[in-house]
C-alpha cells in the first residue's frame, strides 16, 4: 500500500489512505497515511457501520490539508471485537464424519449447503464464492479423491482458487444469520470443527512433506491455525 502511494504521488497524483501495519508505513514513509488499530482485513473498521466508516475516511481525507509530509497520523478510535456471547450461535452442529474423505466431505456439504443459501439471501445474493471455475460439489469431490489417494492435487492453479471458494462457502454459511459475528470464532469453527478444516490441514501436511511443493503449504492454512494443527488432523 505504501509503495503504491509513493509511486502514484511521484507521478503527480495526490494520495491518502489507510495503514494497517504502522511499522511498515513508518519505515517506507509514503506521503500520507492514517494508521488504524483494526484487524488485518478490516481497514475501515466495522462492517455495515456507515457512520464509523465515514469517520475513518474523513480522518484520512483531512491529510490532504497538510502542507508537507510524509504524514503518518494515528487514528484514535479502536473497532471493538464482537463479544462471542452476543454473536449469533452457529447454525450447524458439526460432528465427526466417518468413511472415506469423499463421503465425509459430501456429508458435511449436505449439512452446510442450506445455510449457504440462507446466507446468500441475507446478503442480497452477494457472495465471494466464484474464484474457481468449479461448483462447490465438484471442488469437495476432487479434494476427497485426492485425500483418499493421499496425493497432492495436480492442478495447483485450480486448487488455489478452489480452496479459496471452499473456505468462503463455509464461512458465508456459518454467518448466515443476521447479526455481527466474531471473526475469530468463525475461523476457529472452520479450522477445528469441520471436515474441510481437517482436509486442508492434511493437504498442508502433504505439501510440507513434498520437497518441491512445500512453499504452497503457506497459502493453505493461516499461521493462527497452524499453531494448533496437531489437534485438527485425523
Amino acid at each position: 500500500m505504501s509503495a503504491l502511494g509513493y509511486y502514484l504521488e511521484r507521478a503527480g497524483i495526490a494520495t491518502t489512505g489507510i495503514s494497517l501495519v504502522r511499522e511498515h508505513t513508518a519505515q517506507l514513509q509514503p506521503p500520507r497515511s492514517l494508521w488504524v488499530s483494526f484487524p488485518l482485513g478490516r481497514p475501515l473498521g466495522i462492517p455495515n457501520d456507515a457512520e464509523f466508516q465515514h469517520a475513518v475516511i474523513k480522518a484520512a481525507l483531512e491529510l490532504f490539508e497538510e502542507a508537507s509530509g510524509p504524514v503518518l497520523r494515528d487514528y484514535p478510535i479502536d473497532a471493538p471485537e464482537v463479544a462471542i456471547e452476543s454473536a449469533p450461535a452457529c447454525p450447524v452442529n458439526f460432528q465427526r464424519q466417518s468413511g472415506s474423505w469423499q463421503d465425509r466431505l459430501a456429508s458435511e456439504l449436505a449439512l452446510i449447503s442450506p445455510w449457504y443459501e440462507i446466507g446468500l439471501d441475507k446478503r442480497a445474493g452477494r457472495t465471494l464464492v466464484g474464484a474457481s471455475t468449479s461448483h462447490i460439489h465438484e471442488i469437495l469431490q476432487r479434494f476427497g479423491e485426492d485425500l483418499d489417494a493421499h496425493r497432492i492435487p495436480a492442478d495447483l492453479k485450480w486448487f488455489k482458487a478452489s480452496i479459496e471458494d471452499a473456505k468462503t462457502y463455509y464461512l458465508e454459511a456459518l454467518s448466515a444469520e443476521p447479526g455481527q459475528y466474531n471473526a475469530r470464532q468463525l475461523y476457529r469453527k472452520l479450522w477445528h470443527e469441520t471436515e474441510l478444516g481437517r482436509a486442508l490441514g492434511l493437504f498442508h501436511a502433504m505439501f510440507m512433506d513434498h520437497p518441491q511443493r512445500a512453499g504452497f503449504a503457506r497459502i493453505l492454512l493461516p499461521r493462527d491455525a497452524l499453531r494448533r494443527i496437531d489437534d485438527t488432523l485425523s
Partner: peptide, 23 residues
C-alpha cells in the same frame, strides 16, 4: 470477488460489507 494469496487476514467482514475494504 477476491483472490488474494495471503490466508492471514480476515475475509468475513468483507463478505458482509464490501465497503469495509472497498468503500
Amino acid at each position: 470477488i477476491m483472490s488474494h494469496s495471503s490466508v492471514n487476514f480476515d475475509r468475513t467482514g468483507f463478505s458482509e460489507d464490501i465497503n469495509l475494504v472497498f468503500p
